[in-house]
Amino acid sequence: MVAWLLCAAALIACVVLRLYSLLPKGTIHKARIRPGTQSCSLAVFLGSGGHTSEALTLVSSLDFTRYFPRTYIVSEGDILSARKAAALERVKAAVSPPYSVHAPYRILTIPRARRVHQTLLTTPLTAACSLLACLYHVTLCPIWTSAPLAEVLLLNGPGTCFVLCVATYFNRLLGLPSPRLIYIESFARVRSLSLSGKLLRPFVDRFVVQWETLLQRDKRGDYRGWLV
């Protein structure tokens, strides 16, 4: 019995240490230099409403001939976000016809971690369901198809994006390829971070804010002015 407990404790300690070693450090990340002609796959979570608008504004600024294929991840039932993503793709295709022949985008739907007004009691259940779906797309599918979800994943809240972050760390724990995680705090956040911002800040590879007042001392974060 004692031996089992010791084994379990050792295993947990290993996992925690491994996780700790995976946490992004304060040092500046040196990316592998890519030739300008090489493509980069991109995924973005659209968290509905204002989150979706800001995320799509950010994506609209990118060179679509460079960032492809693109994966838009939406919550179950969020038809509006899926439509807005498709609309952006149409606009981009109209202004730069050469890439439109690839039509390289897809829309993934995942269950919500927590619905609006849902009781805290049932939240673990829906969150687990959401996590399973994320693990399927982020971890399992790439093993089968040997095509990772994306090389970079953009997040800007709310709750469900935390589940995507957990799934990404599962990959890192197992040593599988995982997307770089970039969190962009909303333009609406001037003096205090959103809940998802606070939750995700220690885990994401790059944490970007749009108001300098949010860059507290000794905390990681990037400020480049307003991005939307």
Binding site: H29, A31, R32, I33, R34, G36, C40, T57, L58, S60, S61, L62, D63, R66, Y67, E151, V152, R180, I182, I184, D205, R206, V208, D222, R224, G225, W226, L227, V228
Partner: peptide
């Protein structure tokens, strides 16, 4: 709207 800010940030992050 200044799209170059985020574009440059991501290009830099991804090694372009």
């Amino acid at each position: 709207f200044n799209g170059s800010r985020f574009r440059e940030l991501l290009d830099e992050e991804m090694g372009y």
